[in-house]
Nucleic acid binder design. Structure first.
Lengths: 238, 238
DNA sequence: TTATATTGTGTATAAAGTACACACAATAAA
DNA sequence: TTTATTGTGTGTACTTTATACACAATATAA
C-alpha cells in the first residue's frame, strides 16, 4: 500500500472531486438523428455503453478535455460543440466522487472507430438506445430536451445537414428531433416564407448533390449571417 | 515549507482542478431586476464585486455547494435554482486552475447580509453593475441570455413576483428582463387570452394586496399545474 | 400504360401578434 | 369645482403565422 500511496503525487490542502468531461455527439443520417456511444472496456459498468469522455487534464478547458477524449476514443472531431450540463451526484460513480461536465456536439457524416478505453464505438438511432452506464440515460434526456428547445433558433443544427440540402431533408431532421411527423407542406411553406423575409435559407441554382428521387426536390443553402441578424432582431415577439 | 506541505493532506494519483460553485441570484423589486453581489474581502480581486460562491466540499452536489456558500455569505435562501454554465479557462483564477459551475437563482423579497468571506453583500439593478471580479461579467451575460430565453416558458419566473400579482407587474418584469418597453395593452391581452385557453393565470377575487394607484389593477395568481400541462402540450408548434 | 411515391404549389380558415384609439378612475394642481 | 396627469382596462383594425387539406408535377416501377 505504501508503493500505491507514493504514486499519489498530486496533493492539495482541501478535498477535490475528480473532474470528467463527457460528450453527447449527434449526427443525422438523412432519416434519423443518431448519437455516438462507446462500450466500456473497464469497470465500473464494464461492457455497458456510455458517452465518450474522460478526466480533465492540467492546462485545458473542460470543452478541450471533452473533445480530446472524444477524438482519442472514437476519432470523431465534431463541427460544433456546446455545454449541456454538469452532473455531480456524490454517488454517480461507484468508485469515488466524480463530477462530470457534459457537452453536446454535432458531427456530419463521420464514422467512428474505437480506440483507447473504448472497446467499441457505434452510432445509435436516438430512439433505439442500449442500456447506458452511470447517469448517462439522464444526460441523454437533457440532451434531447436541449435539442428540442434550441433547434428553433440555433444555426448550429445546419451542421447536421449537407451544405446544400432540401426542405424535405430539414423536415426529416425536425421529425427525428421531436419523434413526431410534421406536415411536410406547412413545414415547407414556413421555411420558404420565413426565407423570403429573412434570407436565412437561399435556393441553390445548380445543386451539386443530385439525389435520385421521384421528383427532384429543390436545394437550399444556409445563410448563417442572415440567421444571426434575424435572431438579434427578434429577441422577443408576442 | 515542510510545514506548509504537510498540510496538503489530500493526495491523488492524477492532477485535479479546484472546483467552485457560484450563484447568480436575481430578485425583482417591482420595477427592476436585481442581482446579488458580494464584495471580496480577500485577494485575488480584493475589493471587487463577485457572485457569491465558493469551493465544493466532499459529499455534496454542486448545487448544494452553491446554495451553501450563498447562505453562508449572504443569508439568502432562494426559492428556485438551476444550473447556468461552467467556466474552466485555465487562467480565470490567477492563483491556480479553478473551474466554476455557476447556478442562477430567484429569490423573492429577501435582504442580504454580509457574512464569512464577504465584506459586503448588496443587490444591484442588473443594468447598473459595478466592475466584477474574475470572469463574472461573462457569466452575467450568460445569465441574462438565459433569462431572456427561458422567461417565455419557465414557470420559475413567477417566483420573482408576489403570489398575487397584477399584469402591469408582470409587464414590468419582462420590460426589465429585456431592457425594453412593451406595449402594456398588448401584453395584457396576450396574457388574458393566453389564460383563457390555458388557465395559467387566474384572477383573484379579493386581492389581499391593495396598492394605492390611480386605478386599481386586477390581481392574478399563477397556476403552476396549468403551466406545466401547457408546456407539455406545446412542445412544438408551427 | 398505369400505379405509386415524392415533391411543389395553392386555398381556405383559424389563431395569434401588433399598432393604436379611447374610456375610466384616482390623484394632484389650478 | 374644474382641469390635467397617470395608470389601468377595453376595443378595433390590420398583419402575420399556423393548420388542414386539395391537387398538380415528376420520376420510378409494375
Amino acid at each position: 500500500m505504501k508503493g500505491n500511496d507514493s504514486e499519489k503525487s498530486y496533493c492539495y490542502r482541501y478535498w477535490r472531486p475528480a473532474v470528467a468531461a463527457d460528450n453527447a455527439v449527434f449526427r443525422f443520417d438523412g432519416k434519423n438523428l443518431q448519437i455516438l456511444l462507446v462500450r466500456r472496456k473497464n469497470d465500473p459498468y464494464k461492457g455497458k455503453w456510455a458517452f465518450p469522455g474522460g478526466f480533465m487534464e492540467e492546462g485545458e478547458t473542460l470543452q478541450q478535455a471533452a473533445l480530446r477524449e472524444l477524438k482519442e476514443e472514437t476519432g470523431v472531431v465534431p463541427e460544433f460543440t456546446r455545454e449541456l450540463c454538469s452532473q455531480s451526484d456524490p454517488h454517480r460513480d461507484p468508485r469515488e466522487q466524480v463530477i462530470s461536465v457534459v457537452f453536446y456536439s454535432f458531427a456530419h457524416n463521420q464514422t467512428a472507430t474505437a480506440n483507447d478505453d473504448a472497446a467499441e464505438a457505434q452510432w445509435f438511432n436516438i430512439y433505439e438506445l442500449p442500456e447506458l452506464a452511470f447517469d448517462h440515460a439522464e444526460i441523454f434526456q437533457k440532451a434531447i430536451d436541449m435539442i428540442r428547445l434550441t433547434i428553433r433558433f440555433d444555426p448550429a443544427f445546419f451542421c447536421l445537414l449537407d451544405s446544400e440540402f432540401t426542405l424535405p431533408d430539414l423536415c426529416r431532421l425536425w421529425s427525428s428531433a421531436f419523434n413526431k411527423k410534421f406536415d411536410r407542406r406547412n413545414f415547407q411553406k414556413h421555411w420558404t416564407t420565413f426565407s423570403l423575409l429573412t434570407n436565412i435559407i437561399e435556393p441553390v441554382d445548380s445543386p451539386s448533390n443530385t439525389k435520385t428521387s421521384p421528383r427532384a426536390p429543390k436545394f437550399y443553402k444556409f445563410n448563417r449571417e442572415s440567421y444571426i441578424k434575424f435572431r438579434k432582431k427578434n429577441r422577443f415577439h408576442f
